[in-house]
Design a protein around this nucleic acid. Sequence first.
DNA 1: AATATACCCTACAAAACACATAGGAATTAT
DNA 2: ATAATTCCTATGTGTTTTGTAGGGTATATT
Lengths: 133, 133
Amino acid sequence: MRLSRKSEYALLALIHLAKNFDIKLVTLKALSGQNDIPPKFLETILIFLKQAGYIRSVRGPKGGYKLAKSPDQIALAEIFRCIDGPLAPVISASLHFYEKSPIEKSKKLHTLLKEIRDYVSAILEKTTLKDLL
Amino acid sequence: MRLSRKSEYALLALIHLAKNFDIKLVTLKALSGQNDIPPKFLETILIFLKQAGYIRSVRGPKGGYKLAKSPDQIALAEIFRCIDGPLAPVISASLHFYEKSPIEKSKKLHTLLKEIRDYVSAILEKTTLKDLL
DNA sequence: AATATACCCTACAAAACACATAGGAATTAT
DNA sequence: ATAATTCCTATGTGTTTTGTAGGGTATATT
């Protein structure tokens, strides 16, 4: 797993929204300003997160974004997978994104990489946005 | 950590050399042919591994490559770091390659990512080429 | 209904990176 | 001398990352 800048920004925004869950809508401007995220880039990320079902939005004045589910219902694993793809260190060790790759020729190494995947996956499946507040 | 094709090839070649440690030299042609690695690409990788001190070479007919140290002296962590950089999921969670990154704004998430780094690092530090034979 | 505020959507662009290939130079066994 | 082999640097090409631009759409407020 390697986190892209995009998923870093996504996480920061989601955490910000989690803090305001059931309280208020947060605007793009606020999310971008308070977390030092380039606004137009964040906008594309938020649209993506919306289409993925993690957030909802309201347009017009008084509009903004909010979480679509409660923070304890959003596991980090889901978010990383949907933005950055496989959690495994190599594609052939991935359950959700498997493709053939040369490293499979070494069975022992492949097994080791799958152990790493299992650990990373387990820890990110059990950690939710709520745990980050 | 995300393994590039380059480090996959490097590992396969090193494992091949580990199998022949203290027995014989292995040519580029053999390494490339038996492991399905594009020869010219592998060549650049081998030169890199040589300059990094992991392998030695002999030129001319009967030439080839061999490991510079015994297989139990080469930890996977070193190899991955020297080819792919940080083992950590994000640069700001890396000990050897630290740079500032946005995710540090979330202390809890940052801590979690460092835990993942610690696990991955530990397992790859203790596993050597010998363990893959 | 006019206005201003805010989100929506698609396309584009520059830079970095990944994945190689090309071609010739240097070394050495026979 | 020749052939086999490694050494080195440059280049090419496609993909991914990290954004930006610009116009469209909805809605609260007046």
